[in-house]
Design a protein around this nucleic acid. Structure first.
Length: 310
DNA sequence: ATATGTTTAAAAGACT
DNA sequence: AGTCTTTTAAACATAT
């Protein structure tokens, strides 16, 4: 009987590029920005495959962060402890994966290109950083305010600064990561078709773990179609799409129609609650935080500082 | 010393 | 087949 862990399907390489993995990590936290170490943690917590050969893939990931314009660096203030900058998605880089594959984008995002996802979003990295800082400030104050309100079902679903244009289509990264909640025993007994088609989205990704009791994926509230009813999206952009290869292994899923007929009801399931005191724990805490701090300590601190820069 | 970040180069993979 | 993207390796720089 297969067990999660070594030598099982759980160790399969996820069908996501480093770019999409990184985007997931960044999107997973309310602040929409993470230090490198937390991106590592997010990936390793959820994808057992990446618990090995860390030297290799982390080098690749760093390369991606630097090389791709869709990622921008948000510096810490010098008086803030912690290593490295925070990484965020460029406000204009949305829909990088609208072709439906998380392995390969339709087109590489370049600043100065014709993205126009958010006409208000600046394209130059420097301006974008300021833009994100502003967005982050809004989120921060909103979240802090929310922390003083009576709790609702999901701590992070509060979204006083929700933007009307923040529609995510059903396969947006935010939705994908929200689907990943752990199966009983961590098992997801699926066919060799590791990568389900649209109309066969598995209840859990064989290669992906919800990582422990309090390390649930970041959560929004979802409509029956897996769309977030609320979201805290930077710039209101729409996000990368479906984590499914365009060309799934034909023999592994025989007889499937190609188009999505529906999204399974499980997508509407409520994943484990995210207490504000146990924030998206998969991303870990890279710097000390006051207990009860409603935000991710590192990101929150960075937001405070980033916002204070100007 | 180690982590983080940048850059170049080439091979591999995905798509048209 | 050709083009484009991703992955991997590696050298190097900078920051903590």
């Amino acid at each position: 009987m297969p067990r999660p862990g070594r030598n099982t399907y759980s160790d399969q390489k996820p069908p996501y590029s480093y770019i999409s993995l990184t985007a997931m990590a960044i999107q997973s936290c309310p602040e929409k920005m993470l230090p490198l170490s937390d991106i590592y943690k997010f990936i390793m917590d959820r994808f057992p495959y990446y618990r090995e050969n860390t030297q290799r893939w982390q080098n690749s990931l760093r390369h991606n962060l630097s090389f791709n314009d869709c990622f921008i660096k948000i510096p810490r203030r010098p008086d803030q402890p912690g290593k490295g900058s925070f990484w965020a998605l460029h406000p204009s880089c949305g829909d990088m994966f609208e072709n439906g594959s998380f392995l390969r984008r339709r087109k590489r995002f370049k600043v100065g290109g014709l993205q126009a996802t958010d006409p208000l979003a600046p394209s130059k990295p420097h301006d974008a950083a300021h833009y994100l800082q502003h967005q982050a400030k809004l989120r921060l104050s909103a979240l802090h305010a929310a922390a003083h309100l009576p709790q609702v079902s999901t701590g992070y679903s509060l979204n006083p600064v929700s933007q009307p244009s923040s529609f995510k289509h059903p396969f947006a990264i935010e939705n994908i990561i929200a689907r990943e909640y752990k199966m009983p025993g961590g098992l997801a007994a699926f066919s060799a078709a590791a990568y389900p088609l649209h109309n066969q989205l598995s209840p859990a990704w064989p290669h992906m773990y919800g990582s422990g009791v309090d390390t649930a994926a970041p959560i929004s509230e979802f409509s029956p179609y897996g769309m977030p009813l609320k979201s805290i999206c930077h710039g209101g952009q729409s996000l990368p799409a479906i984590p499914v290869p365009i060309k799934p292994t034909p023999t592994s899923v025989p007889g499937l129609p190609g188009l999505p007929a529906h999204i399974p009801a499980f997508l509407a399931n409520s994943p484990q609650s995210l207490s504000p005191t146990s924030p998206h724990a998969a991303t870990g805490q890279s710097s000390p935080a006051a207990p009860g701090e409603p935000l991710s300590s590192a990101a929150s601190a960075a937001l405070q500082s980033a916002v204070a820069v100007h």
